[in-house]
């Protein structure tokens, strides 16, 4: 039972979370648009699973929409994961390569 007050707080927290530090309006635009793009993109990715079966796609899409609301702004995590730190890039290269090997060899 959330009152209007707490809803306002929630929205405020949500917004503050991805403007911390860089509060200029043009940077803010970037973060907001980036967030929306990411959400839309992840939904499109989920809908790709219709190739295997349509119900699976629908279930995944619903699950992803729920998860997106639950986990809040994605864009900060996205920015962090896409930073050019050597270890981070190395980590993601390993993950990609393992997925490629696993999918092609045992898919």
């Amino acid at each position: 039972m959330g009152s209007i007050d707490s809803l306002y707080d929630k929205v405020k927290r949500f917004v503050i979370e991805f403007t911390s530090g860089k509060g200029t309006s043009s940077a803010m635009t970037g973060y907001m648009t980036g967030e929306l793009q990411t959400v839309a993109f992840i939904m499109i990715l989920a809908s790709f699973f219709r190739i295997f079966s349509v119900p699976l796609g629908i279930v995944l899409l619903a699950a992803v929409v729920g998860a997106l609301f639950f986990f809040g702004p994605m864009i900060k995590a996205m920015e962090r994961e896409n930073s050019s730190g050597l270890n981070r890039v190395l980590f993601w290269v390993m993950i990609y390569f393992a997925v490629i090997i696993a999918v092609t060899l045992w898919g």
Binding site: G30, T38, N82
Partner: peptide, 12 residues
């Protein structure tokens, strides 16, 4: 495509 364009949005 998607990560590149989203990251481009964030640059100042």
């Amino acid at each position: 495509m998607m990560i590149g364009v989203v990251m481009a949005m964030l640059q100042t």
